[in-house]
């Protein structure tokens, strides 16, 4: 991960800031500049709801290099309660409780870090409630 890119996108990663079309009300995450439904460019920031439901999930036993110490990790597609679909890691998840339809809530966890002296990358993960 690159610190400056992370910093630019930190609102997306830590607050789930997406966007909302002022004209038709459609919501997006990640944010868009043009509404995909009505074509309007009148877009505002919108914080997504932090609760949702697992739509699908997978277990990664060979995750990318930044996450290899944390294997296995669980990735899930979450349908937030405002209808938006997001991809995220599951936190504190025991395999027997991970189910399609399980209710989750977004929290903040460490994603990864640049060694002992680099930046710590914090971002959302979902925990089962």
């Amino acid at each position: 991960m690159i610190p400056i890119a992370y910093w630019r996108n930190r609102k997306l990663y830590t607050r789930l800031i997406g966007s909302r079309c002022k004209k038709c009300g459609a919501e997006y995450y990640p944010p868009v500049k043009v509404c995909k439904k009505c074509g309007s460019t009148e877009i505002e920031e919108k914080e997504m709801l932090k609760t949702g439901t697992i739509v699908s999930f997978t277990k990664l036993t060979e995750p990318p290099v930044d996450f290899k110490d944390y294997a296995p990790i669980y990735l899930a597609m979450i349908r937030l309660d405002n209808g938006i679909l997001v991809l995220g890691q599951l936190a504190d998840a025991e395999s027997e409780e991970i189910k399609i339809g399980a209710r989750v809530m977004a929290t903040i966890r460490k994603w990864t870090e640049d060694g002992q002296s680099g930046i710590i990358y914090y971002g959302y993960k979902f925990k089962i409630i």
């Binding site: 944390y70 936190a91 504190d92 929290t107 903040i108 966890r109 460490k110 710590i120």
Partner: peptide, 9 residues
Amino acid sequence: ASYDEDALT
């Protein structure tokens, strides 16, 4: 604390 938790989280 879990592996991805610290004082900040």
